[in-house]
Design a protein around this nucleic acid. Structure first.
Lengths: 316, 316
DNA sequence: TTTCGTTACGTTAGTCGTAAAGATT
DNA sequence: AATCTTTACGACTAACGTAACGAAA
């Protein structure tokens, strides 16, 4: 036989309370007729009468009394569980966003502002994370979501929608040999020295930022760096290394550093990254919102036409 | 929005266990398609994703984990409540039948035998109750159902189907003035003395058994009796009182007592009486069974044609 | 290519209201 | 007569299966 449904139990509970078909129907926005039908159905499912009724009185049978006593607490608990789950689904809790010196920028600002607009009660905080081990903060639950380059190959992580696309530039000292060039190709890095991030910098990230070799196969020399982006900037300014990065990096916007477009490297994208297992409704709300926003396109200097998100359909 | 139904929760729980749409569908005798639809519906009702699924993997989201943890115990409890109620509805427990010296007879024997046939595991016991206060045993829950004359006007009691119809006879001493009569009328009781049952004998019952006056209005004299039917029988045999009763009363089938038909008194019916508030499934089973049986007709001596239940449609 | 989840679409079956009937005061 | 529950009947819609589609290994 078809199983009992919550609808019928609800009718039973209200009828057991009202002991009147008309009032029960009114409370449930049903007709008395329907209340009668449902009650009879439930009684047939249970295999016995639950109400003793005449056209003048409605009373619970002992079986009905038993069911009422047993069912009511369980039903109320069930309702609470469902309501609680729905509330949790709708709720948007405090959100901790991990950023690095290079991932914080106008795209993130725009996203955070839009998120705050939609969830005024939600507290959003930014936390700087270790550039060389950006995922650790995620895995230690110190941040809920990370903004970083979308070059992720970790099984426990999920790399979400991009928030900005960045053309590739090479940061060099103003007096560097390449500083006068209008643009360079990846092949030009064959003679240069780049930074070698310390362990445990993710390999996929390293490969995306620092191509291991030139198109012709020449290796690109790497020298270790110890601390942070700041150290790289200093080394670049000193002319000891060059640093391939993306457009729009304000940390490199210095008088003593020149940024030269690298024409044959694919753009990099900044985007949201989070722990697959902790994808709660807050993160979903954020990523959904990010998905609706057009990623900012950060072009090379002198190509500003797409820089303020007015371009469309230029994905990839 | 339409409320959540148990069907959907069941699908959720099985899918959360199997983490596979095909197996879930098989266990629920549904199609994978349907499982998908129901899951999606539940997710929309809850307002958030419950499963993270690709064509290769199915996993619970944090929201799904939460719902699973909260819902499973409640759902299992609910199932137990429903199953318990159904079991209770189907169950037929021990049955204690209250009888008096005059209410026990072939009709009850037939009913008990039929009941035992249908419910072999059910223990049926007979208990003699006070003739002068027959309902006390019911109200004290010493018996579940009473067999007595169906002349009940108590609000807490319910008088059910008759099991036998009895013509009226007057028990008199063999040497009594009326003993030679083939039949008498109620009017003849005007000169006689009948028993006066002690308190708290129910008034409706007293009126049914001992008419207060003759058709012409003459009162019928009553003298108190103290103990039981046995005392009445003794007093009748001594010729001190006469006693109106029903046909088929073996207690009065004695050589020193004559039973004379009273032609103008309505027949009395023996039947089942029980507490309205304790009408459980056992009582329902008994009364339902009694309703299906044709009441025995106990005629005056010499009118045996209807005595063994072969008569039909002679109700009333 | 196979497996698996999803979508589209048509059928079945349950849900529900209207109206009339039956019962009780 | 008025109130209340039940039954009969028909409209609507949710439940469900079939089949085709799309993604992943």
């Amino acid at each position: 036989m078809m199983p009992v449904e919550l609808r019928e139990l609800h009718v039973f509970l209200v009828l057991a309370e009202e002991l009147h078909f008309g009032r029960t129907a009114a409370r449930l926005t049903l007709t008395p007729s329907r209340v009668s039908q449902v009650t009879r159905t439930l009684e047939r499912r249970m295999g016995g009468r639950l109400f003793e009724r005449t056209s003048r009185t409605v009373a619970l049978t002992p079986l009905g009394e038993h069911l009422l006593a047993e069912l009511r607490p369980v039903y109320e608990r069930l309702e609470a569980v469902l309501a609680g789950t729905a509330a949790r689904a709708a709720a948007v809790g405090p959100l901790r966003i991990g950023v690095t010196m290079t991932s914080e920028g106008p795209a993130l600002s725009r996203l955070v502002r839009a998120f705050q607009d939609r969830h005024p009660g939600c507290e959003v905080s930014l936390h700087e994370v270790d550039v060389w081990d950006p995922y650790r903060a995620l895995r230690r639950h110190e941040v809920d979501v990370l903004v970083n380059w979308l070059a992720v190959e970790e099984d426990d992580l999920r790399a979400g929608p991009p928030i900005s696309h960045h053309q590739r530039v090479l940061a060099v000292a103003r007096d560097h040999a390449l500083a006068g060039r209008a643009s360079i190709a990846l092949e030009d890095l064959g003679d240069q020295i780049v930074a070698h991030p310390p362990e445990p910098f993710p390999a996929a990230l390293a490969d995306a930022i620092f191509p291991p070799r030139t198109p012709s196969g020449r290796p690109i020399r790497r020298v270790p760096v110890s601390r942070s982006i700041s150290e790289i900037i200093a080394q670049v300014a000193l002319g000891r290394i060059v640093h391939p990065t993306g457009t729009g990096m304000t940390a490199f916007a210095r008088d003593d550093i020149a940024l030269i477009p690298i024409i044959d490297l694919q753009p990099l994208s900044l985007g949201l990254i989070w722990l697959r297992a902790r994808e709660d409704t807050t993160i979903q709300a954020l990523t959904e919102l990010a998905r609706t926003q057009q990623p900012l396109l950060i072009p090379w200097p002198g190509h500003e036409q797409g820089a303020r998100g007015s371009s469309r359909g230029t994905d990839g």
